[in-house]
């Protein structure tokens, strides 16, 4: 997929890649934690959520900032070290934020958005918009796929 990054990451995030990753990680979860003890439901929910996000990030590929941030976060929770090739010099947004005090309302809203989008703390505003657009696309795709899964798996 590294050769396909352009065709994949431009517009529509792929459902099937996400679904494949997600199902694999779900089954992976199953094999890792075969015990069905009910006190672990919260842990299980968290793990399923994390699996969903990680597979979404993997389906999006490693070129998006939010997917990199998600994978990095997941890897840090798993105590692994992830190294992505850094293509751009990272601009710390805090240094830029002091320069932009013209539209405080918009900047406040952008800060809230920055908290929502993974890895948004490092982005400047225009980059944040771009990443948010792709993130929203991927999130809606994820919600659709998970809805399909739940509908297919839930007892009729």
């Amino acid at each position: 997929m590294a050769s396909q990054d352009k065709s994949i990451n431009t517009d529509v995030p792929e459902k099937d890649v996400f679904a494949l990753h997600f199902l694999q990680s779900l089954s992976n979860l199953k094999t890792q934690n075969p015990s069905n003890s009910p006190d672990k439901t919260n842990d299980r929910v968290k793990k399923i959520k994390m699996a969903a996000y990680v597979s979404m990030a993997r389906a999006a590929g490693g070129r998006r900032l939010w997917s990199r941030a998600l994978l990095r976060r997941a890897a840090s929770e798993n105590n692994k070290i992830v190294r992505f090739p850094r293509r751009k010099r990272r601009v710390t947004w805090l240094s830029r934020r002091r320069c932009n005090r013209r539209a405080p309302v918009e900047e406040k809203a952008a800060d809230r958005l920055r908290d929502l989008v993974p890895g948004g703390g490092e982005m400047e505003t225009s980059k944040l918009m771009k990443e948010t657009a792709h993130y929203i696309k991927c999130l809606s795709m994820q919600v659709k796929v998970m809805q399909c899964l739940v509908d297919g798996l839930s007892p009729k």
Partner: peptide, 16 residues
């Protein structure tokens, strides 16, 4: 975005 993330959480709960 928040609603989508909440939906994901809810769906993962249902999956669990």
């Amino acid at each position: 975005v928040q609603s989508l993330q909440r939906q994901v959480e809810m769906l993962s709960m249902r999956l669990a």
